[in-house]
Write a protein that binds this DNA or RNA. Structure first.
Lengths: 137, 137
DNA sequence: TTATGTGCAAAGCGTTTGCACTTTA
DNA sequence: TAAAGTGCAAACGCTTTGCACATAA
């Protein structure tokens, strides 16, 4: 049997969770840290990283795969109710959520053809958002 | 008018390209460096990074988005003939190419609903490869 | 009271850069 | 011979870690 993890409910963790929940959006660690610092002057960014890592392992929070060379993004995990994907505008950097899972048929095909059992997917689309398309005209 | 880039055909660049072409697979920078070092004892990893960056900007090589906290992968770009996606086995770490683009209908929907013009996509599926599924039984 | 979490500063790791030197064209 | 590329070592940015101290249970 696994020793159950005895996890503590610290002020810092509460702040991080509140921040993630109330934002409801993807945020990078620097942003989260900035917001929390207003409520706890002394908090260390190492604590933010540590808590986010734990929360991710528990599935409370999701770590996102955005552009390669950018800091990590996190968002509150709505318990897999509906997966969403991200659209990243390559002109203005906007990140737009796209709430729809049309990947199912693709995933079925992959399982059939490759014998690969898909558990998760990371899908990011890059392109131009509506505003930038208009601005470019 | 843009000043045309006067690019040089160095031994180092040739080695890198040969390595990428003949492998025909995704490789991380450390791997590429290791292989090239057999042919050029003195090459610096900074040169590998520099060349890969330039080759990527020219579209000769493609930078891949695998797991978040892992080093960058590159692969020779077959000129967009057929895009392929990657399946990453979360048990053994195998990376399997999946040559098929069933994303088109999804992309069409996104353009209609969001006014977002998709130029590129990064799609990675995580799960269990055939071997690991069998091993787990 | 004690295991767990914290803050701090230092280290880690992949990647980039400044600079003097070499090479390509 | 001049512009472009190189090797080296130092710097970078994001993230993790070691350690002494603080805190939740």
């Amino acid at each position: 049997m696994d020793t159950p993890a005895k996890e503590r409910n610290t002020k810092q963790k509460r702040l991080i969770l509140d921040c993630m929940k109330s934002s409801g959006r993807h945020m990078n660690v620097e942003e989260i840290y900035g917001i929390i610092k207003k409520h706890d002057e002394k908090i260390s960014i190492a604590t933010v990283y540590r808590n986010l890592r734990m929360l991710e392992q528990q599935g409370v929070v999701k770590k996102l795969y955005m552009a390669e060379d950018s800091p990590s993004f996190y968002e509150f995990n709505d318990n897999g109710e509906h997966t969403h994907h991200h659209l990243v505008c390559s002109r203005c950097g906007a990140i737009i959520d796209f709430e729809e899972d049309l990947l199912e048929s693709l995933e079925k095909t992959i399982e059939e053809k490759k014998g690969f059992k898909i558990k998760d997917h990371r899908v990011v689309f890059y392109g131009l958002c509506r505003e930038c398309r208009e601005a470019e005209k």
